[in-house]
Design a protein around this nucleic acid. Structure first.
Lengths: 337, 337
DNA sequence: CTGAAAGCGCTTACAG
DNA sequence: CTGAAAGCGCTTACAG
């Protein structure tokens, strides 16, 4: 089986302590003879010794692992953030356990409990829907936690979001400046604060430009089965507002589905003002005239790890001390054609 | 801090053993009085007891966790497979630790060692490049392992791949049947067996149809910096073969980049026969005339988990018994416009 | 210069 | 009906 400290100790007729000291580089400090140290290193190499990190964690009380829970790993926004988080954590000696909540609250709760039971030192979480209770529990326990993308105004914890309102405002304003007058907003999950803020930015831009916010131009796609539901919504908007001349998509997934609809119906995209939050590579060929709010992926990931580790390492000294929470709102760069 | 068995035991003046038995549902079997059991459950709930899975794993010798290492989590193919694997593993009581090798061999090796040190019970791995040695070590140790997407013919281990040669053959054949005569192949990483097989399928289709395989129609994009390198390759092909009339892309990422190039140059995609392995949602609007080999994502994920868990659970009984390896070649469904 | 011992939080064979 | 004890593989304060 796997070789342990004990195996090396027995083979060399030394104590486990001696092996542990030398292998952890504290041999000189403890005054272990070079000869012994040599033998130990030699033997460890021969037996291909790898310390059991579970045992180490059990002893030390921390696992050097952080948990990351996202709603959809196949969504390029989340997977890119996950990539940055893993890279950033790795650079600081931490590894990451990723959990996919599939936007299901029960799965999210299960994952939170699982990752805690696996003794992750902290959690980065893009919450799904209205999953407050399990998160509140974390906050009550002073468990190191950073939320991103979505958050709950009432819960006192670290979070990182983008300037949803302002970015939406900028995008919609640009479309109006470019001549659009009847801009539809295509969105989802209105109970998410994030989505509401995007809608507010949309409304502010219209009002500032003396355009009215029409109910007919509001399209909310139910979250399940995007693909089939968006068609109905777009059908309705084209029917009720035949002279619609712009579309603001609050997510890239909605945009891609809409473009597929446009293509199916033989509608020329280029006739419309377009805007979307977050970009995917295919946009450049698919809808070159689209205005985009670029998600600051790197900053989201870097800040999430930085804040979490600060929390973790701070609490290592003084367990019950509650840090001041950090709340960060990042700007999106607006990219126009 | 976190509450442990000991805390409950002390509070209730019982032994840790009693707590452990009742909480693990073996109370009746051990004949622990209902009254005691009640008290234990009650107290566990009050203190919000969650077992420390690290301690449990240390004792039992298995962690109920599998490791998954993929080259790029932001690639929709890998992230979709990851999603299925996580779902499938979860259904069987296992959780998944995902590692992103970023197609770097050093990172892949580091991740393999890390996950082993964290005592994962087995590993699912889409190897990057020619990373044999660390994998061979796993095989020598009889460590439960399943490769997917890429594999090494010389290494005797479980793997799951698609019928790269046949799928490519079908796609290219279809383009020829539809009238294409000068079909370019755009590929990458020719040292990967996977990519070679795709090239072989391409060549077989051409030869069968009495077309010659021209060197000028072969475009290999270096792996780093796809975006910039593909332009040069396509420039060259258009220059050397002005009447090129079809493109076979061996990956969806190459196709998306090429479509961006086509758009930038004002070239009409619809004039060309197109084919690609794996599909992304934007294709339907971007290149509706494309022929696609659909990756059997679900089957890849399901088989990977099934085979790995079979291996893990089989070895639990007889440690050193080497199972017969399972090698699976899955068919891709060919989707034509 | 090196070792014996305790402890992290579990589980389980053994004992009464 | 319940408990004492050993052990999983580490680390570290203490001792000599």
């Amino acid at each position: 089986m796997r070789t342990s400290l004990k195996d090396i100790a027995e083979k060399l007729n030394l104590s486990k302590a001696t092996i542990s000291w030398t292998l952890s580089g504290k041999g000189d400090e403890k005054g272990i003879s070079m000869a012994t140290q040599e033998k130990v290193f030699q033997c460890a190499k021969e037996l291909n010794y790898q310390p059991n990190l579970l045992a180490r964690s059990l002893h030390s009380g921390y696992s050097k692992t952080i948990g990351l829970i996202i709603p959809d790993i196949t969504d390029s926004f989340y997977s890119k953030v996950a990539c940055i988080i893993e890279r950033e954590a790795d650079a600081r000696g931490y590894s990451v356990m990723i959990g996919n909540s599939e936007s299901k609250i029960e799965r999210e709760n299960k994952l939170i409990r699982l990752l805690k039971a696996k003794q992750v030192d902290g959690l980065i979480l893009a919450p799904t829907k209205v999953s407050k209770t399990e998160i509140e529990l974390l906050v009550d326990e002073a468990f190191p936690l950073v939320l991103f993308d979505r958050y709950f105004p009432q819960i006192n914890t670290n979070y990182i979001i983008i300037d949803n309102e302002e970015s939406s405002y900028q995008l919609v304003r640009k479309m109006v400046v470019d001549g659009a007058r009847k801009i539809a907003i295509i969105t989802t999950n209105s109970y998410l604060r994030t989505m509401n803020m995007r809608r507010e930015g949309y409304a502010r831009a219209l009002m500032e430009m003396n355009l009215s916010v029409e109910a007919e131009l509001y399209g909310e796609v139910p979250f399940v089965d995007y693909e089939h539901n968006i068609d109905k919504i777009l059908d309705r908007i084209f029917k009720e507002v035949p002279d619609v001349d712009g579309f603001f998509f609050t997510t890239h997934i909605l945009a891609i589905e809409a473009f597929r609809y446009f293509y199916d119906k033989g509608i020329d995209l280029k006739k419309y003002a377009l805007a979307c939050i977050h970009s995917v590579p295919s946009f450049r060929a698919l809808a070159p005239n689209i205005n985009i709010a670029l998600m600051p992926i790197d900053e989201i990931g870097e800040n999430a790890v930085r804040i979490l580790l600060k929390d973790i390492e701070h609490r290592q000294g003084n367990p019950k001390v509650m840090d001041k929470v950090e709340t960060i709102v990042l700007r999106c760069e607006i990219s126009t054609p």
